[in-house]
Amino acid sequence: MEYSNGFPSKRDVSLQELSKRLDEFAKVKGWDQYHSPRNLLLALVGELSEILQWKGEVAKGLPNWSSDDKEHLEEELSDVLLYLVHLADVCGLDLGQAALTKIVKNAHKYPVTSTNYTNNSTYN
């Protein structure tokens, strides 16, 4: 198992890799039986409610946050992501490809206009 390698250094992480790890995790612990789509969706909602709770308005990059608070936020964001990835899997969807498709669709829905940016980059 890759766990013996310790924690990863900074590198690009694919949704596919997270998906594989979560699947292994759920199977090894016998939790598959509980991971129905609606259970996972509700678990995701629960994790979401904890993000940025009681913080008031915060600036980009979270200046003045303690490292403990930042680490806690990282865990909350990770939990939402992991539940989302697992939910997509359990529904039989390729989340990565769906996301790329949605970005293209959004780009068409919200076209770049000359009034808001001089360089018109495109995704094509």
């Binding site: 766990y3 997270l18 990059g61 930042k70 990770s78 992991l82």
Partner: peptide
Amino acid sequence: LSDICGVDLGKAALRKVQLNAI
């Protein structure tokens, strides 16, 4: 959201998965 908060989401998620396994 993660980007704007300065969080490396991929790294954080891998760490969480590994912590859970341990």
